[in-house]
Nucleic acid binder design. Structure first.
Lengths: 348, 348
DNA sequence: CTGTTAGCGCTTTCAG
DNA sequence: CTGAAAGCGCTAACAG
């Protein structure tokens, strides 16, 4: 590595023969500086390639023009949020900083305290779980924690979406449907399970014992659960996972086990991240308007900062997108043809 | 908005009945603090929910554990880079900050100076154009500027990729192929044009006058150029665009003009961003391993920071992905059947 | 109009 | 083992 020439305000001041205070005024466009001085200083700034140190200035100023979007990690879901949020932030005069908190417990609070103290003027939090409403800076949450004392929130209609997905499976002839749940602290995960249960109940189909599982949205955990489920003699003919990433992982496990999708097993996800379309076969899923949710969250944040009154909860519609990962259950596992000998039917 | 209780180190110190210096030592795990004091202070930290202010600490410390990925804006291309970079950063003990510079001239230098002064210990820059090798912190560039004095770099084999794409079109029977170039300052854009020209020359096919254009990767510019091209009497039967976003835009324009893809016009892109698969019809494109490039860039940065010797330029392979946007040219525009009357053949 | 001064919250010598 | 004091780079009164 080359040495590092880091030019600070004092360097500019020295070279221009003025004080740092004057340079600061020029940089921030404050009144009370002679035109000549302004031009002189700007020349030196140009020449030296000076650009202010964010830490230092943000430490001193009451407000910055930086907004944050705080996520647990940069995966497909949060990436879509970021794209949406960025599109509105970029046209608002604010800069955007996306930060991944490292997916450890309490990342929301930590990220917010570390950046929010001074660096950023506000933040949108993606799927936060531990956080109360009293924050250092204005905050809006996307798809947050299940519970009271809520932050201003954007989410999607998880309940209806899950119902539609389940109904789709049922209409195809499935009855042995397993549900791979998400993180039970998240309101949305809760509602997806509720939607699933409701649709099953409405159709009068009992949920098999052991078919209601939790993956915490962790692909590895999903793989493990799927494997266990699919190795049972009375395996499910369909899996509905509470997000796309775990659905795709479950699909991979099925294929490793020699089952083909959708001939032997149907799989439905939730979210419609770009990867859902890329999966082989393309994943049937419940679409959430992810980018639009990110954008709406950013709009709400901007309003909050500007002091504009508005609704503090926006719920967006979801929509079932049928692609190639769902079909009729395999003949030998259909409930209609076999009545009592399901326990002895084996898969491949 | 609620008031903002922001807890600082002094608050912890006061509540614990010690000095800020001691709290600082505890927070940073320095030696020379009594076990009891450590526990006492940690208790208070827990209780108050204290988390250090990043600006303040980074201002004082020589190094932080934060890495940056600096992009012009959060679009599909950079989003893929970020995902890849994040996957390796997150397992390295560093935190990741992604910053969009706002797509104005000189964003690379400005972002780097503002964050690199103190906030971040190193950065990967996505498609930077103005920047010399003498930077404040270790930096690696992904798909950078065309020119000498280069930073440590990750890029993909644009030349071969462009050749393959062009050959694909030629093998389908196309000869009237237009090329929508990118940003000529980027090395990659340069090489894509070179690959196109080379493949055409090898096949002995002349490039029609006006068929070699530049879009600067701007969708609007691409739309304009495509419209002009497709309105000509001697319109191209295929368009090869230097990235997916402009290819998709060109495809839309064709459809607005009543041409169907691929029956009337074949379109090929470059990158294979997720949107390429989502396009209607799915876009034939040259795949760059975007996430892997981001990951490799981050690995290189980590090595740079750790002082590990290694190659400063990694070039990844590209691969043609044939999807639904390419096919044989329409009969009436085939060179084989018509010899000299192309100028009078009209489109729809 | 310009410079001097006093911090922002934190880390780090260096005395007690 | 602990705390007082000096400053990181910058901004905001306040005097000159």
């Amino acid at each position: 590595m080359e040495p590092a020439p880091r030019v600070k305000m004092a360097d500019v001041a020295a070279k221009a023969g003025v004080s740092v205070a004057t340079v600061s005024k020029v940089v921030n466009g404050r009144y009370g500086v002679a035109k000549e001085t302004v031009e002189l200083v700007q020349g030196v700034i140009e020449e030296l390639g000076y650009a202010g140190n964010l830490s230092a200035s943000s430490l001193r100023m009451p407000q910055t023009n930086m907004l944050g979007i705080l996520v647990a990690s940069f995966e497909p879901f949060s990436a879509e949020m970021i794209k949406g949020a960025a599109s509105v932030a970029e046209s608002s005069g604010y800069e955007l900083l996306a930060h991944s908190g490292g997916d450890t417990h309490g990342w929301e609070r930590r990220s917010l305290a570390r950046l929010g103290g001074t660096l950023i003027a506000g933040a949108v939090l993606v799927t936060p779980t531990v956080l109360d409403a009293r924050t250092v800076v204005p905050v809006v949450a996307v798809d947050p924690h299940y519970g009271p004392n809520r932050l201003p929130t954007i989410d999607a209609d998880s309940f209806t979406g899950a119902e539609r997905a389940t109904e789709h499976l049922i209409s195809l002839g499935h009855t042995r449907i397993a549900f791979l749940g998400g993180r039970s602290e998240l309101d949305s995960a809760h509602l997806r399970e509720a939607g699933f249960r409701n649709a099953m109940a409405e159709a009068g189909i009992p949920i098999e014992s052991g078919f209601l599982r939790e993956t915490r949205y962790q692909p590895d955990r999903a793989a493990e659960v799927a494997r266990e489920l699919l190795l049972r003699d009375d395996r499910p003919t369909a899996i509905f996972a509470a997000n796309d990433v775990t659905a795709i992982r479950a699909m991979e496990v099925a294929q490793e086990l020699g089952l083909s999708v959708p001939e032997d097993l149907s799989v439905v996800g939730f979210d419609d991240v770009p990867d859902a379309t890329l999966a082989k076969p393309a994943l049937t899923t419940v679409r959430q308007p992810l980018q639009e949710m990110g954008a709406e969250a950013m709009r709400m944040l901007l309003d909050l900062i500007a002091g504009v009154e508005r609704e503090h909860h926006v719920r967006m519609a979801t929509e079932l997108v049928v692609r190639a990962s769902t079909g009729e259950p395999p003949l030998e596992l259909r409930p209609a043809s076999a009545a009592g000998d399901l326990a002895t039917a084996s898969a491949d």
